[in-house]
Design a protein around this nucleic acid. Sequence first.
DNA 1: GATGAATGAGTTTTCATTCAT
DNA 2: AATGAATGAAAACTCATTCAT
Lengths: 199, 199, 199, 199
Amino acid sequence: MPKKSEAKRRRIKEVALRVFAEKGFAKARISEIARQAGVADGTIYLYYKSKDDLLIRIFEEEMDGIIPQVRERVAKGRSAREKLSSFIDAHFEIVESRPDLATVLEIELRQSNTFVRNHLKQKFKEYLDIIAEIVLEGQQRGEIRPDISPSVAKQAVFGALDDISQNWLVLQPRKVKLSEFAPDVKKILLDGLCLHPAT
Amino acid sequence: MPKKSEAKRRRIKEVALRVFAEKGFAKARISEIARQAGVADGTIYLYYKSKDDLLIRIFEEEMDGIIPQVRERVAKGRSAREKLSSFIDAHFEIVESRPDLATVLEIELRQSNTFVRNHLKQKFKEYLDIIAEIVLEGQQRGEIRPDISPSVAKQAVFGALDDISQNWLVLQPRKVKLSEFAPDVKKILLDGLCLHPAT
Amino acid sequence: MPKKSEAKRRRIKEVALRVFAEKGFAKARISEIARQAGVADGTIYLYYKSKDDLLIRIFEEEMDGIIPQVRERVAKGRSAREKLSSFIDAHFEIVESRPDLATVLEIELRQSNTFVRNHLKQKFKEYLDIIAEIVLEGQQRGEIRPDISPSVAKQAVFGALDDISQNWLVLQPRKVKLSEFAPDVKKILLDGLCLHPAT
Amino acid sequence: MPKKSEAKRRRIKEVALRVFAEKGFAKARISEIARQAGVADGTIYLYYKSKDDLLIRIFEEEMDGIIPQVRERVAKGRSAREKLSSFIDAHFEIVESRPDLATVLEIELRQSNTFVRNHLKQKFKEYLDIIAEIVLEGQQRGEIRPDISPSVAKQAVFGALDDISQNWLVLQPRKVKLSEFAPDVKKILLDGLCLHPAT
DNA sequence: GATGAATGAGTTTTCATTCAT
DNA sequence: AATGAATGAAAACTCATTCAT
């Protein structure tokens, strides 16, 4: 594919991401994306099969950039604790630096039609599995409690991060940085809420 | 007897909940709800102002039933740990016994139009605040780590429960009971993932 | 028919006239008329066959009251000029004293569906014919120009009165009395606009 | 070539005018207009914002063609009498040659919803003011009776013309030409009905 | 490659009227 | 006579997608 086209594809992608974030996928108009990208409506269909395809491919391309980044960062941690801590930091930083992306992913991931959702979830699993891998490895190395399912841990950790991120995203006047929540989240997930261990 | 038929109102509500869960709010058709409820399309509008109103009122009525129930159950716990444990059990039991309701609430809460979402969120906050109250009281009684924001704890706990519930709901062949995840979730949230406390 | 029913019929008629004038026939709701009349929706249909019938019969009953009144008043005039003058005064006075009625008649007479309009026009012709009769008789008595068709005269006179009445009705703050226009209208219709007769 | 097809816009306008005249604005169906114009329903909305907009713009465009034409014709008259005479002729000729247009204007001008009516009335005032101007100028030149309000004269003249035009339009088998009424109308409005001036 | 005019499927809601009580 | 709950037909408008140029 010629370079010229690649630039256009990128412009469409960037505009689409912004419009999806602003209006939500359902209310976003192809004609609005075309207008802002400076192309004709029909041109979008030369680069993307459909509106659904546009969302799916934006998501996949972004995740393909993010996942290795997060993996690399997590790899630097010397213990499971450090790795989980890095994951939490990385997640919050991504949400903070790419709010449009985060808004689209976190919100559209749950709605959209089944077709789109299934595509998104598939790619998303790769991201979530980073957590599961850390937990499993930590258990093997005796750093993580062995009596917890890595799958449940994965969901619990991501659910917590996601809920906090989402609430932060909808708070219009973001006076507070999302990363400020990281310490508390780490305490809860890594060390638990309770002071006295269960008997 | 109240104005119009209370039984008919209930039948419409039950059918609507089922159809909303199956199709999603946006794709649910008033005509389909009417057909399944055995009434004319127009009859729905004698009981509910609009499709939006139908969703909002189903949600509010259900939450008004659920919140006191959960509160009562939580109140029986003698410690913050027991109360949180009860909340987790209660949440999973509700999702398990009312999957339609849970599907509608958890999914529509994030999408729908702004008008509907705002209504839903407002009522939903009452539910989430049960967690925040437990945490705050637990901190005052020296049972919960004092260095954690109740608000962050609330979001982390609910996020974890919600993510697990949602994943369970979309797993079509529900071979496993949701409540089986409760022990692991409690371990994580109450005692943490790590074996060795942070230095 | 018992007296009790007659009172109810009249109440329905009066309320309907007011609601038709306020909202227009199309936007008027049977349920609103019923509510204001203090009866059930269905009760209206014991007295009137349909919404159309309600309009038609209000119109006919009112015209049956008005036509003899105007005829009587016109009869007192000793010349065609006096009779036409009386007709103009009478018309303006009716519009002024019964604005609801005038609004409904003048506006709905032109719209509504064909069925209704035909009914209304039929009864309305009786009213307009008062003018034609004055003109014809005036011509026979040498008071009115013989070279004018009574039918054209009838339409011209009524059209002029009607247009002025209608404009007055839509002027919300009726600071000026409609009857103040009578002298000018009489000058125009009875004596003409021009100072120098056609050559 | 202008954006989209001007020919298509015109075809839609012409068809719409015909359908509005036949069915009335309220009963006219967009789908019927589209079918007769040989376009898809949605295409109408590429050219006109809404059904209301379609009516308003047809009206305004037609009046923008008619008003200068009538003004020009009236300007040729050397006296107020001649000018009024020309106005009457012009009005009847327009109604006769464009019965669809006249039907839509005369009927919808009075009904429609407030939004539409206000738009129509505004443009219509320009037309009526031609009469007022003739009268005012005639009064200044001593050709028209000075003791008559130009506004009342305007309403009386237009009301007369309008009522006659409308009656002619609803007479289905138009055996008689509308312009045949012009001489009588001129006699009445210009010279008055009465033979003996008021004392 | 690019355009943008054209397509046409799809659904909530209102309200006059009915009829069982 | 009166009620009022129930009925169900009916129509404007949007917007993703296509395809002739």
